[in-house]
């Protein structure tokens, strides 16, 4: 214990190390944000399942949901996750042009997904299946709507980050932002897997 002396330690940390450390911390923190978000989705799922069991005419989903449309939405979202992955590969290789192209395709697929969802919501509202009809529909719209809002927000963020990469190039900081955005995007697809597996498909049996 006698040799416990004050030492100069990260004082002489080089700037590059400091940037690297900050990036690692941000990734770590972002995981925690995703955990909080995952809990929000988990609660919405739980509420949905409970509502589906408590609501008398919950089987109406059979007529409201359309298998081809859900399949199309799923394919669009999976495709967007693939293109996002390719953008991540491209930024690791510092290929600015390819990053922009893959992100552009991700945006197109994402927009397609959001459009499919809006069409579905609109169709349901017209078919007198609006969120205020019963608890089942309330929970459905809350869960799927929250996911759709997340996807839309993610799309805005992809646009912003794409602009940054186009203007400033694939810097390490931009790469780390793309990495975190990728975590968010793939996380949303995991949520969607749960949505089509536990919300849509069981009601189309």
């Amino acid at each position: 214990m006698t040799d416990a002396v004050i030492t100069a330690d990260p004082g002489d940390e080089a700037d590059a190390d400091a940037v690297q450390r900050a990036i690692e911390e941000k990734i770590y923190g972002f995981w925690l944000c995703l955990i909080s978000d995952a809990i929000i989705f988990a609660l919405l799922f739980a509420i949905f399942v409970v509502m589906a069991q408590n609501t008398a005419d919950a089987s109406a989903g059979r007529t409201l949901f359309q298998l081809p449309r859900i399949f199309a939405a799923t394919v669009l979202l999976l495709a967007s996750s693939a293109t996002f992955g390719l953008a991540s590969v491209a930024i690791a290789a510092r290929q600015r042009g390819r990053v922009i192209v893959w992100l552009g395709m991700t945006i197109m697929f994402g927009l397609g997904f959001v459009a499919t969802e809006i069409t579905e919501f609109h169709g349901m509202a017209v078919a007198d299946a609006a969120p205020w009809r019963n608890g089942f529909l309330s929970a459905f719209f809350a869960l799927v709507g929250t996911h759709g809002a997340h996807v839309s927000f993610g799309l805005v963020w992809i646009v912003l980050l794409g602009c940054e990469i186009a203007l400033r190039g694939p810097t390490p900081i931009a790469a780390s932002r793309l990495y975190r955005l990728g975590l968010f995007w793939h996380f949303l697809i995991i949520v969607w897997i749960n949505i089509f597996s536990f919300v849509y498909l069981p009601r189309l049996l």
Partner: peptide, 10 residues
Amino acid sequence: LGTQFFAGSD
């Protein structure tokens, strides 16, 4: 919005 999350005893 008149949703029914917390309507009724359930």
